[in-house]
Design a binder for these strands. Structure first.
Lengths: 119, 119
DNA sequence: TTTTTATTTGATTAGTTAAGCAACTAAACA
DNA sequence: TGTTTAGTTGCTTAACTAATCAAATAAAAA
């Protein structure tokens, strides 16, 4: 997705009007309109101001949505747990995932317990 | 980290000389030097060319290193599991993490099983 | 519909990047 | 030391963004 559409998408997701961003940035409405419509290629310093006004990081304009969603949807403590899980050996991981799947309804809890008992 | 240092860092990590990047991009050595030394603010299209020459995405110039490393170090299947875990209710999450901690040696397995039995 | 507000477009001016060339510096090496 | 290669800096010209004002459209509200 090009940056113009990305900015507009983020702005609308935040429920802001172009005018609000413009006054927060302190730039002219003409310029902002051209940026959001891809009529001009904004400079990095202009993009930084817009990102700040939208309450996002500059990286958010360039990351593809899927990866971004992954990054932002998990809180820090969950990420720590993921690191811990990642450090387990393969058998332990399988057991953990077996229990997770059981909770998620993808698998019988009994099977998960059989796996746990085998440890 | 500002973009100038980031570009240089990535280039050196890839073991490329400035000259190699320059010829891959097709830009003048003077301009590239000014960019890597923060003497000028490159346009997005120039940055795109440099990213392509370095074999990275434009986002890599803006992403926070630590966060990126985290995301890239986990394989896709683990990320899927994380999503599944994230979707569990709080009690189920606690139980899963309890077992994970037990495996990781941070907690007695017995306590983890007590937690599991309570579900 | 009329009025108001929000957004887009045009045109001008100023400031800055980009390209190209030349000259200079730094570093590696014979 | 002298030489080559890589990288930096100064300069000029061209192209483009940014700011500003004005005018045209679109959208929303009365």
């Amino acid at each position: 997705m090009d940056i113009a559409k990305k900015i507009k998408k983020i702005r609308e997701a935040k429920g802001m009007t172009a005018k609000q961003v413009i006054s927060a940035v302190g730039m002219g409405a003409a310029m902002y309109s051209r940026i959001e419509n891809g009529k001009t290629e904004p400079s990095l310093s202009t993009l930084e101001k817009i990102a700040k006004a939208l309450g996002v990081s500059l990286a958010d304009f360039f990351n593809d949505d899927n990866k971004l969603d992954d990054i932002n949807s998990f809180d820090a403590s969950l990420m720590e747990k993921v690191k811990t899980i990642d450090a387990l050996n393969e058998d332990e991981k399988k057991t953990v995932f077996s229990i997770v799947d059981a909770f998620a309804g993808k698998q019988k809890m009994k099977d998960a317990l059989v796996s746990l008992a085998a440890q």
